[in-house]
């Protein structure tokens, strides 16, 4: 029993179980398209950790490998950015204006609503980067003296919500152009939204991945300017 507990609490088990659950949840997703693989995998993971008496801190020793890989994954966005940038050369400047407008609106509304509900300065700052991809959002949150954990939660939930309801909201608003859908989802719901678009439309997914990279860069520049004005 002792030995078993040692294995369960080690990094190898954490890495194995994470990849295993990811693989299973992808299969579940292909059978039941409504089952979001991230939600399935994380829910089962939380349940398993609880049943096997593994503390989250112990799981983290192996699990942090994946969080670390989010850094290279951010840099890797340069490839779709470059490839789609070449293809969309003619409309690049207009796309930049669109994403800039979306990013400003996102930061202002997120901060304003949190402020109206009486949130503390730290919490307000944590909401500002909530539309961009996790590794960028966490760093922006740190630069703004927010709470990176709150930011990560906001990013994940808005990404999930955006990828689930985003396309229907746009359809109801009669926004049907592939480029417009891609730009809106990429700017509001980063990688999670992009992944869901890619599963049915290459065009929407491409524009979305370019928009999400642009939104990440624009938001971190805006946050930098904000922290300069604040002091």
């Amino acid at each position: 029993m002792r030995l078993l507990a040692e294995v369960f609490n080690g990094p190898a088990f954490a890495i194995g179980i994470t990849i295993g659950l990811y693989w299973i949840s992808l299969h579940v997703h292909s059978r039941f398209p409504w089952a979001n693989p991230l939600v399935t995998a994380s829910m089962v993971l939380v349940l398993l950790l609880y049943l096997l008496h593994i503390s989250y801190a112990h799981y983290r020793t192996g699990g942090q490998v994946f969080s670390w890989l989010l850094g290279p994954a951010t840099v890797a966005l340069g490839v779709p950015m470059y490839k789609q940038g070449v293809k969309l050369k003619g409309s690049l400047r207009r796309l930049l204006v669109v994403v800039l407008a979306g990013s400003v609106v996102g930061m202002v509304t997120a901060g304003l609503v949190a402020w109206m509900f009486g949130a503390s300065h730290e919490v307000i700052m944590s909401t500002l980067p909530k539309s961009v991809t996790t590794p960028i959002a966490i760093q922006v949150s740190e630069n703004l003296h927010g709470n990176p954990a709150i930011t990560a939660a906001m990013v994940l939930i808005s990404g999930l919500l955006g990828s689930i309801v985003g396309p229907s909201v746009l359809r109801m608003s009669r926004i049907q152009h592939d480029h417009a859908i891609g730009a809106a989802i990429g700017t509001s719901s980063h990688a999670l939204g992009t992944a869901s678009l890619l599963s049915h439309s290459e065009v929407q997914g491409s524009v979305s991945s370019l928009a999400m990279a642009m939104a990440g860069v624009i938001t971190s520049i805006l946050a930098m300017l904000l922290s300069w004005f604040w002091h």
């Binding site: 979306g102 509304t109 949130a119 985003g166 730009a183």
Partner: peptide, 26 residues
């Protein structure tokens, strides 16, 4: 506060970006 901020901001970003792109990129 977090949930309200999240939902309002998500809808605002979707509609501004989508709407503006609809006119600029059509």
């Amino acid at each position: 506060a977090l949930l309200a901020s999240l939902v309002v901001s998500l809808l605002a970003v979707l509609l501004t970006t989508g709407g503006l792109a609809h006119f600029l990129l059509r």
